[in-house]
Design a binder for these strands. Structure first.
Length: 505
RNA sequence: GCCGGUAUCGUCUAGGGGUCAGGACACGUGGUUCUCAGCCACGGGACCGGGGUUCGAAUCCCCGUACCGGUACCA
């Protein structure tokens, strides 16, 4: 099998297109076939090299590698349509000579007027055929006089075109409803329907798997294969990805491009896994699969026929799973830029990174995206006892029965204590419990308030050792100074004494 | 308008002439005797409508309806 993904470089890689790329890739990798990347940049106005580069970046990030493409070449290049112009001209010439194509001198304005009138009169809005039967002398004369012309395909009359779609079965069209498509534009660039056919043939593509929006193009293309004397490939049309309101996914639905999801802190394996689940279901009940496993199991006849709504909530759930099972070191590295954005100046060396990796466990278990990690761990880096004491939620904890007592006892216990690890923290907590008689929430809530400055957050068994691990980091490890538990408890105890407006204990 | 495609819980889906119509996300309730989150358990929730065919239709056929796509010298 030879498959391809053929984006036009006119913007960001959309998740819908990413899914199309993924399905092609899955088929290629699951069959030891080839996956070809081709850039469809025949729309000179809208195509840019920046978009092309961005698309390649996104595909690589997703892990969808290609065997032939514009950057690495291959035996069927070039892989940019803009570099294949002579090929299209040559094939158009063949059709012109065979009489299955003809020159069209109609102006865009004339075409548009005709189109509008047809629509108004309730007729099919297809090319009226003005230039279809021009005498060859007239064509020659107008060409010779320098008049610009497009090349159109002469769609055979009164026929039926059928093809077998690998996901939907047989689909047929009457040629009567198909207007003569432009093959070569006045400027010599090929139009889409022509370029794909020429390229798919020349590149030896065996399976064309693309969006459902191309289904009505397919009969034109089948006709072109015939006229050119080639066998058409197999076709498979994938349903589209929609927004929650069931309209095509667009910017007003929020994030729609792969780059945006990356920025928000989704992992590539999560996005890929989730995308595969729209319109495809692995046999069995498991939905969480590696790409390799997906490639092994993927099959076009298990692909659904109907459009799917993109559900970011489910993506988040998938992401959570991968976040949790990923190597903490990798997550720590990925999280660094998000910390910087949140104002924490991290440039960790090996020791700093090891510390961060250790701290990840208390974030990844309860967070959907990388973006949410810094807020979850902010208590490590900014601790301000005076500010904490003024926080209503913290205040409530301290002022609850026994709250102050616990804080004071904690500060005293910690005064002589070295850096806490999990065991030492438990021992300290046990001693505070003994001294104060407080237990469970009445014990741990004030401890949390004093040590993290917050009323909520990761469990203390994890948070406390992390704080002291951070405090023990040598200066220059690229992590901002972290205040240790002993110092925190002392500062907090002092702050509650000094806080004005507090009712006497 | 014309042509084409699609239709199972809110969402992604499994299934398919006789099933308690299954799972996942989301949601609700309870549990996890340090909170939030998470996690666990339980729960509510669906076959677009109408005709046929049949002992029996969500499943097959027809007709509607809705939605999506195309109808470009965009792709």
């Amino acid at each position: 099998m030879r498959l391809r993904f053929a984006p036009s470089p006119t913007g960001q890689l959309h998740v819908g297109n990413a899914r199309t790329a993924l399905f092609n890739w899955l088929l290629a990798r699951g069959s030891s076939g080839a996956f070809v990347l081709r850039i469809e940049d025949t729309d000179v106005e809208r195509s840019t090299r920046e978009s092309e580069a961005a698309i390649l970046t996104d595909l690589r990030w997703l892990g969808l590698d290609w065997d032939e493409g514009p950057d690495i070449g291959g035996p069927h290049g070039p892989y940019r349509q803009s570099e294949r112009l002579p090929l299209y001209a040559e094939h158009a010439q063949r059709l012109l000579e065979a009489g299955t194509a003809y020159y069209c001198f109609c102006t865009p304005e004339a075409l548009e007027t005709a189109r509008r009138r047809a629509l108004a009169e309730g007729r099919p809005a297809r090319y009226s055929g003005t230039c279809r039967y021009l005498a060859s002398e007239e064509v020659g004369r107008r060409l010779a006089s320098g008049e610009r012309a497009a090349v159109r395909f002469r769609v055979p009359e009164g026929r039926e075109v059928a093809f077998r779609d690998l996901v939907r079965g047989e689909i047929r069209f009457e040629t009567a409803v198909i207007g003569d498509p432009v093959l070569l534009r006045t400027d010599g660039h090929p139009a889409y329907n022509f370029a794909v056919v020429v390229d798919d043939v020349l590149m030896g593509i065996t399976h064309v798997v693309r969006g459902e929006d191309h289904i009505s193009n397919t009969p034109r293309q089948v006709l072109l294969y015939e006229a050119l004397g080639f066998d058409p490939p197999q076709f498979a049309h994938l349903s589209l990805v929609m927004g929650p309101d069931h309209t095509p996914l667009s910017k007003r639905h929020g994030a729609t491009s792969v780059a945006e999801f990356r920025r928000k802190g989704y992992l590539p394996e999560a996005l890929v896994n989730y995308l595969a689940l729209i319109g495809w279901s692995p046999s069995g009940d498991e939905e969480l699969l590696s790409v390799g496993e997906m490639a092994r199991r993927f099959s076009l006849d298990a692909v659904g026929h109907s459009a799917g709504v993109f559900d970011e909530g489910k993506l988040a759930w998938v992401n959570r799973h991968y976040l949790r099972s990923a190597d903490p070191r990798r997550i720590a590295e990925l999280a660094v830029p998000y910390f910087r954005d949140a104002g924490v100046d991290l440039r960790p060396d090996a020791a700093g990174l090891a510390f961060l990796a250790g701290a990840m466990a208390m974030a990844t278990g309860s967070v959907d995206r990388l973006e949410e990690i810094p807020p979850r761990l902010h208590f490590l880096f900014d601790y301000d006892a005076a500010a904490a004491v003024r926080r209503p939620a913290v205040r409530e904890v301290v002022e609850a029965a026994g709250g102050r007592e616990v804080v004071l006892a904690l500060a005293e216990e910690l005064a002589a204590e070295p850096r806490l690890d999990r065991e030492r923290f438990r021992a300290v907590a046990a001693r505070v419990r003994q001294r104060t008689g407080r237990k469970a929430a009445a014990l741990f809530h004030p401890i949390r308030a004093a040590l993290t400055g917050d009323a909520g957050g990761p469990e203390l068994d994890l948070a406390v050792p992390a704080i002291d691990a951070g405090a023990g980091l040598p200066a220059g490890s690229g992590v901002p100074a972290i205040l240790g538990c002993r110092e925190r408890a002392a500062a907090f105890a002092q702050a509650i004494e000094e806080e004005p407006g507090r009712a006497p204990a």
